[in-house]
Write a protein that binds this DNA or RNA. Structure first.
Ligand SMILES: [Mn+2]
Ligand SMILES: [Mn+2]
Ligand SMILES: [Zn+2]
Ligand SMILES: [Zn+2]
Lengths: 146, 146
DNA sequence: TTCTAAATGATAATAATTATTATTTACTAA
DNA sequence: TTAGTAAATAATAATTATTATCATTTAGAA
């Protein structure tokens, strides 16, 4: 089950297995919506009323540092989190604030090939992503996360 | 000269020609570094000691709304500004916080062609950019903007 | 020139995140 | 098992970036 994988992932990184880390990590794993720290906090505090919002922030940062989750910056400037750590792209939907995963092998291939041909002097490329922005045609049917 | 173009651009959008708008706009036009509002404020306040930081923020927002400049979100979450309004990509250099312009017709063509083939249901794509992240090999030689 | 809506400056308020610190707890090793 | 201890947490203060408020000023129209 998820709990076992979470504890395994934490201990593999030498992190202490705490209730708070398990709860935050599991909350993010079960959300495809790329939530903010605050949204994760709101989601878990019913069942964990003693948890502190600062702990949620710190836990997320710890998980990012240990590459168990990813940070996703947004055009509005608020940081969001992603349990997926494999390479994939995002579509930011500006009228609902949703972030959708977008994955396409053809696109990955195209970009990798393009960048492998290019040379940047004094620069080591560490990451590249296509940031797609769009608008949902019928926002009423969508999942609005704010 | 620049002043004339700035005033022309402002009046073309029906915006009042104020000293503050001219100064902020010119400051951004002369900076290829994608500065923050605070950096623009710091740069102009020697010659304009009465200008308010709130005015700088508001002026930049007004220019963005009128599509005379662009906002550039960054991985750290602070907003930066760009006098260039033509479509181009950015390289974010994580060890110096520089943002470099990156423009390549071949890349534009590849991306446009790729996306034109794809169909997204209920979604109108408004923008797409390749976000490249890298590290400067010899940061000592670079221009550090923070 | 006068008039007025819009812009500005000063500053308060807000939102998101980080820092501080006393207390608690997960692991370690007797 | 049971201490012992370094690390983690909760509560809360502080900080940073940005936006809101509002009294005053001003650009541009008449
Ligand atoms: Mn991602
Ligand atoms: Mn902020
Ligand atoms: Zn994702
Ligand atoms: Zn640019």
């Amino acid at each position: 089950m998820v709990l076992e994988e979470v504890t395994k992932a934490l201990s593999a990184k030498g992190l202490k297995i705490t209730h708070q880390r398990i709860v935050v990590f599991k909350a993010l794993l079960s959300s495809p919506l790329h939530p903010t720290a605050e949204q994760i906090y709101d989601g878990i505090k019913k069942d964990n009323p003693a948890i502190s919002v600062a702990t949620v922030y710190k836990t997320l940062e710890t998980l990012v540092e240990n590459q168990l989750i990813n940070k996703v910056p947004t055009p509005e400037g608020t940081m969001r989190y992603d349990a997926r750590i494999d390479n994939h792209n995002h579509i930011y939907i500006s009228n609902t604030n949703e972030i959708m995963d977008y994955e396409d092998e053809e696109l990955k291939g195209i970009l990798a090939q393009y960048l492998s041909k290019k040379k940047f002097q004094n620069l080591h490329i560490t990451d590249f992503k296509l940031q797609i922005k769009g608008e949902k045609i019928d926002p009423g049917k969508g999942i609005n996360i704010i």
